[in-house]
Amino acid sequence: GGGGGETPEGEEPVADPVTFSLSHFMSNQHPLHTNVLVPFADAVNEQTEGRVTINVYPSNELGPPPTTVDSVVSGAFEMGFVLAAYTPGRFPLTSILEFPFMFETALQGNLVAADMRDDLQKYEYSDMKLLWVGGTDIAKIFINKEVSDVAGLAGLKLRSPGLLYNELYAKLGATELSLPVSDLYDALDRGIVDGSLMSPSALVSFKLSEVTDNIIDLDVYMNPLIFVMNNDAWAKVSADDQQVMEDLLAEFPAVIGAQYDAEFEHGVAFGKEQGINFITFSAEEEAKFHAITDPLKEKWIADMDAKGLAGTEMYEKALQYIEAH
């Protein structure tokens, strides 16, 4: 195979050169594609002197996002960059990163996630190589009804971003609907859903500013992202070249965190410019909201421990890392 890979002229590679395909769900205009993944692929190729070539395929060209992880495991392509929420139930411990009110910024969240990578690799990524784990910008609550308090969320139809938030919605008395981000524009526009937990960057990237009236100004959660690689493919890379890749990956948390924080600021500014109403809850209402979300964490930890997973351990480590960043 590897018809797409070209070795630089006049070079006599030492090890067998390898070519990997990297699939992701963002468009070829997305800053993560242009500023992170493509430069990463170029740098790997250059620094390994052509021994490792990575072809980056944006826009789900190799298959839809829910299938990315399985495709990496099966070897349909070697590398995948995807939201962890697309494979519900598969990475239960990773969902600690989507806890409500864990992180203040994407940068903090990404640095903490990086610290947790080795443990996560050990506990739930044994059938693949976890190259990197992090997350998007911090999500707020997009809502197309006038809401001034927690009680106002009862009875609304909200899109749920994942298993943990299904429980939150149940406690709020809201009806949860599950649909992919790509359908959210239509669903908000048509009133199929009243709102969704969503990153402000989506106001720009998914044009959601056109169909969003209000945003509750609470920084609720980070949507975890993972960058995974097929085990056999990883093993084909020489130890030296693996180190080259690891060194480049070590820059991801700071770069991606800063990138998403910038997207977040840009999204908020753009939203305000477009006349979206940013609702601020009173301190009392905010406390009420926390009173609803806090028990979710405890329940999650208990659930994990009951299943024999390292719930408590990971939570305590997370708190430690948050302290450090």
Partner: peptide, 17 residues
């Protein structure tokens, strides 16, 4: 273009997915 293993894996996953 990609690899034979890749194509073989896709045969199993793509129809369902």
């Amino acid at each position: 273009v990609v690899s034979p293993q890749a194509a073989l894996a896709k045969l199993g996953t793509d129809p369902f997915n």
